[in-house]
Design a protein around this nucleic acid. Structure first.
Lengths: 132, 132
DNA sequence: TTCGTTGCAAAGCTTTTGCACGAAT
DNA sequence: ATTCGTGCAAAAGCTTTGCAACGAA
């Protein structure tokens, strides 16, 4: 996915700030606003939040809830659905394929008469290492 | 479930503030800190947050993510697992049984070597009425 | 040139902390 | 009597907004 193309499709300007943030997500898969702020101190905080909102809106990233203050985001991957599990001791995050959970959610939504636009599974626990 | 018993089991004082908050959850199932603050203006904000944290810790309530600023909480129901779907137009929240999703999560966690302590599924969408 | 986007600073919310007073055990 | 919990006020963390200046189209 080329961010330039997506921005053009949505009639939004291609700016160095947006390209920087997009590139950041391609190498740090799960990031928060403050991760980005630390990585690019020259970016204004407001622009970071505005760009995150834009990326959400045009479907470039999605929110990932992990039971914390402050949201996390990751690039949307069209053809692979996964969710995250976070160790509340060491902070490690593990992802796993979740196509079947996705499917379950959609079928449940259909029963109720809901059109799902966004979903996120937040799992906290303790990893093998931290179980002592 | 009697809150007095649970508090006693955990060697915590039984106070009118804690009882009030517990009772509030029994009739308004999904609530945020500010819902409680509005319902009981006489309670200090700090005590509300402290009590929420206590209730979380002793397993009386659980966090419910709904893609918003500010957390929501609900009473833990030992023998029925459900999750929530929220309409982003009208704000309506619908819950649905999710025993099978729960099971899937636990089996996935086992594979990875994780012990799940808390999980929450956040689903946003558009309900039948709002689909125009 | 025009309109969208940025950075800064200030404001807004939600949540936490320190401390003295008051209540529960 | 002692310990635990409360309220207040202040601080801290995260996110949004207003506005003037700047850069993309």
């Amino acid at each position: 996915m080329k961010i330039e193309t997506v921005l053009r499709e949505h009639k939004r300007s291609i700016t160095p700030e947006r390209v920087k943030m997009f590139d950041f997500f391609t190498h740090k898969h799960l990031s928060s606003a403050s991760d980005i702020e630390q990585a690019f101190p020259e970016l204004g905080r407001a622009s970071i939040f505005r760009t995150l909102r834009l990326f959400l809106k045009i479907g470039v990233i999605r929110r990932v809830a992990l039971g914390e203050r402050g949201e996390n985001y990751e690039l949307v991957d069209e053809d692979s659905h996964h969710e995250h599990m976070k160790c509340s001791k060491c902070g490690k995050v593990v992802s796993f394929e979740s196509a079947d959970i996705c499917q379950k959610i959609f079928s449940e939504a259909q029963k109720i008469g809901f059109h799902v636009t966004e979903h996120s599974l937040s799992i906290l626990g303790v990893c093998k290492n931290c179980m002592t």
